[in-house]
């Protein structure tokens, strides 16, 4: 097998004295969708942010595309065709939808902004109707589409998605998951996905990791993990079978 696109080995991250990630090993190969599941506070978002160097890993190594990025400044990491749609969307509320999307493209040096904009708007037609609206006045679902759209404007090789389905109606969730699958199939986009909705995420992903209290406790293909009784008990209880 070729070297993974993203590889974490022995990564530990701290907030002050509190250790949020413990010796994490994780690989994402080019063209894969990998999902990370775990309870609230397990450290999923911390892992996504550590890949981006904010907070920085205190121990271990992060290799991306054959290069050690463990100590690189955040803005340089993000110019290596890595994009994140972070937890809580974090769109710029006092900028228009159009400006938000531009922010995704500009700093990654994209030259063909109109074509990219067109692609993103094809994916999320609602955004096209609202290009001049202020980001802060969008509905929650539209904001989530904007957050993902903004990340896609950077034309990433690796897309980090932190809970894209949070607070969205099931129909919109299906749309977004469908979009991820399409992008992965058609453009070979590599995705690392954090989800509370473990059932859907594991069905979508090629492989998954389970994070408990900052440490990886299980890894396997989506099908394998879905079949594990302890996963069913811990993450799939309560009507997620639809």
């Amino acid at each position: 097998m070729t070297a993974p696109l993203l590889s974490l080995s022995g990564v530990s991250t701290y907030y002050g004295a509190i250790q949020a990630l413990k010796n994490v090993d994780l690989q994402v190969h080019e063209g894969e969708i990998v999902t990370l599941i775990g309870a609230n506070g397990a450290g999923k978002s911390t892992l996504m942010m550590t890949v981006c160097g904010n907070p920085r890993a205190r121990a271990g190594q992060i290799i991306y595309d054959g290069r050690d990025i463990t100590h690189e400044p955040t803005h340089l990491i993000m110019r290596r065709q890595i994009a994140q749609a972070p937890e809580g969307r974090r769109i710029f509320g006092r900028m228009t939808v159009y400006e938000n999307l531009l922010m995704g493209a500009e700093t990654s040096g994209q030259t063909n902004v109109p074509a990219l904009l067109d692609q993103v708007c094809d994916l999320f037609p609602r955004l096209r109707e609202r290009l001049t609206q202020r980001g802060g006045t969008l509905s929650g679902g539209e904001q989530q589409m904007l957050a993902i759209g903004r990340a896609l404007m950077a034309r990433p090789r690796l897309l980090l998605l932190d809970e894209p389905s949070l607070g969205l109606a099931p129909l919109v969730v299906r749309q977004i998951f469908g979009a991820i699958r399409t992008l992965n199939k058609e453009t070979g986009l590599t995705v690392l996905l954090v989800e509370q909705n473990a059932y859907q995420a594991l069905r979508l992903a090629h492989r998954g990791y389970v994070l408990v209290n900052g440490a990886i406790t299980m890894a396997g293909t989506g099908v394998e993990l879905l079949a594990r009784p302890e996963i069913r008990a811990a993450y799939l209880e309560g009507g997620h079978y639809t």
């Binding site: 400044p73 955040t74 803005h75 993000m78 110019r79 922010m103 995704g104």
Partner: peptide, 23 residues
Amino acid sequence: PLGRTMRACEQDLKMAGLLGIDT
């Protein structure tokens, strides 16, 4: 673009960094 970068930093410094802006 410079102005947009400044406004992005003003509104959400952390996110600006995630977009590749040298904050």
